[in-house]
């Protein structure tokens, strides 16, 4: 089976993270969404879900977002899983392929979470080896996304934005900047999110993610949980404005994974992000006309 497009489309504007609950609506109504992002691990089988993606791919550019490669595992990357990802990439020919700065597997167990890494020379070497391996097997460049964190390791001498920059520098990968994750991590670990964002190498960032988070009281203080279960918060919208000013009008994704609302709610969120992206475009035009 192959998809009848000549070359992968490029992403522009504000896309939406496509979830199972919206598949039927997207197939029936063809909503005006510039592009969709799908989780690779949900489409590694056959049947109805694969058929739905095949049809959606004919009408929309697709970005493929992996959540299971576990690039930060000291045990190495699961070769069988990487082969399945390659088969999916070859079939889908997505506009982008992305994964995470995290790990999930150890000792043959897959923990189903994007778990945190200590940022050391050792973990940097591990990540780089596995990104090289993935890019080699997939035959294309991937983007690496910053995680949300609820803890800091005692020994983690490299700041996260520098660590990401080093990965990109050593492997040639691009970066995916999740603005909500920056805000969540900064709040949970006592960092300044603007300083974090400004430390990212802006030329290497190629996609932006936005989502909602929850506030939980745990252990006597407030912790932000990256649950993708609510509208983007005011603070994250403000940080996004700063991101757009600094990084430019990058393709941006709205994600929602818990208590998923009707597609129209996600489209409203996407519209809000579009206005911020568009405002930046207008400012840019104004500046070049002056």
């Amino acid at each position: 089976m192959s998809v009848d497009t000549a070359s992968p489309a490029t992403l522009a504007g504000v896309g939406i993270g496509l979830r199972a609950r919206h598949l039927e609506e997207v197939l029936a109504a063809h909503p005006p969404v510039p592009w969709f992002e799908v989780h690779a691990e949900n489409y590694m089988g056959g049947g109805m879900t694969r058929r739905a993606l095949e049809e959606i791919r004919r009408s929309y550019p697709i970005s493929l977002h992996g959540v299971g490669l576990s690039l930060g595992s000291a045990d190495g990357v699961d070769r069988q899983h990487l082969r399945r990802l390659r088969a999916l990439v070859e079939w889908l020919d997505p506009a982008m392929v992305s994964e995470h700065l995290s790990w999930s597997s150890t000792g043959g167990v897959y923990l189903n979470h994007l778990l945190p890494l200590p940022y050391t020379e050792e973990s940097c070497g591990t990540m780089c080896r596995h990104i090289d391996q993935a890019q080699g097997v997939l035959g294309r460049r991937i983007l690496i996304e910053n995680p949300s964190s609820y803890l800091r390791f005692r020994h983690s001498p490299i700041p996260e934005p520098e660590f990401l920059a080093e990965l990109a520098h050593r492997t040639g990968c691009g970066l995916l900047c999740d603005v909500n994750n920056i805000y969540v991590t900064a709040q949970n670990l006592g960092l300044d999110p603007v300083v974090y964002l400004d430390a990212l190498p802006s030329a290497l960032v190629e996609e932006v993610h936005l989502a909602g988070h929850a506030r939980n009281d745990a252990g006597g203080r407030t912790i932000l949980i990256d649950d993708h279960g609510s509208p983007v918060s005011l603070e994250v919208w403000n940080l996004y404005r700063h991101a757009v000013a600094r990084l430019g009008s990058l393709p941006t994704l709205i994600e929602w994974d818990t208590d998923i609302p009707p597609l129209a709610v996600l489209q409203d969120e996407a519209g809000r992000a579009e206005r911020i992206l568009g405002g930046r475009l207008l400012t840019g035009l104004h500046a070049s006309a002056a």
Partner: peptide, 23 residues
């Protein structure tokens, strides 16, 4: 291996455990 800053490491680990089991 986890820094304590303002919250016990076991409380921080509980957040990760909750996500693994819930999903």
């Amino acid at each position: 291996a986890i820094a304590s800053d303002g919250m016990r490491p076991d409380a921080r680990l509980r957040i990760y455990r909750h996500h693994v089991f819930a999903t």
